[in-house]
Amino acid sequence: MDLETVRTFMAAADTGRFQEAAAELGVTQQAVSKRIAALERALGVRLFDRTARGAEPTIDGRAFLPHARELLRAAARAVASVGAGRGRLRVDVLSSRGAASGLMRDFHRAHPEVELDVLMLFDMDTAVASLRSGAIDATFRAVTAPGRPLPDDVDSARVLDEPLELLTGPGHALAGARSVSVAQLAGQRIWMPGIVPGTEWAAYYDALLAAYDLTIEATGPNFGSDALLDTVADTPALATFMGARTRLVWPAGYDLRRIPVTDPVPVYPHSLLWRRGDPHPGLAALRAHLAAVAPAHSGPGTWAPDWANRR
């Protein structure tokens, strides 16, 4: 939809006259009439009735009015979110339900004065390229997977070691356990269709499988977490891994179980990456906040890939 025609519609509706709308927009009255006619053709309805008093919105025009206002507000927000001088701190997280998203919600509550744009970029290469170009200010990633050293102008700090949990349905053989050791998982069907080859989380699980002789099934399309929960709840033989800080909600009838994994505790190493020299004051506030509230490294009895601390 052409936003100029929507803006013209709003001006005509607010002023009640095409002539006044033209003066407000700095165009001719004929241009206003043409734009309104184009919008009416696009919508397939008449938006104004011409009266002695000017232009009165029709029933369809009045119905369209609040949506037109919201379209223009959305356009203004979109423009404000991009370009130099935007002022917002842009941070990339992998998932809206994951640990990094939770850390950003905590940061926002602690620092409401910092305006945020939270994005979700899929792969690490895109995230690092976006950092280096200045398109984003920070990203949460597992650093550094084999074969992916960070560029010299990108810094990182490990901010959270997130324990893994086993998620099962009520009929699973381990459903009643208070915790489960890594050794007990040998031979279990652990299904994770969201593992994509070449990603840092694929490298993490490859290292875990190699270290403890486990098997993960990544077969089938990934229809998202809701479909995964449906399948695990209905299939006693299946379980899946999830981070302890992953926020999920499911129907009470599913009776799913989140079971801590121990001996050792596998932890997923979340790091914050940023471009060296980025002057955004919100970035300094974010780094200080994470250093104060997030346990960067777990103690003895935990496991992480040996590449987790490398640059």
Rank of each mutant, 00 (worst) to 15 (best):
W250A: 15
F223W: 06
L174T: 03
P221K: 10
L208H: 11
A227Y: 13
V261R: 01
E200R: 05
A207Q: 10
A203G: 04
Y212Q: 06
S225A: 08
P236I: 02
R247S: 04
R189T: 07
E165M: 14
Y205Q: 13
D234C: 05
A227I: 01
T199R: 14
Q188W: 01
L166M: 05
D152A: 14
I190N: 08
D226P: 00
T199P: 11
S225C: 02
G243I: 09
V261S: 04
T168R: 06
L174D: 00
A252G: 01
R178P: 00
G243S: 12
A211K: 09
A218V: 11
G176I: 00
R189A: 08
S156H: 11
L166E: 01
R245G: 05
T168Y: 10
A233R: 07
M192D: 10
A157G: 02
G243D: 06
W201R: 15
N222W: 14
F223E: 13
D155P: 00
A237Q: 09
W191L: 07
G224P: 04
R245L: 14
Y205L: 13
P236M: 02
L166C: 05
A233H: 03
P236W: 05
L185G: 06
P251W: 05
P260F: 07
A177K: 12
Y254I: 04
L185F: 08
T262N: 00
D226I: 08
L256A: 06
D255T: 04
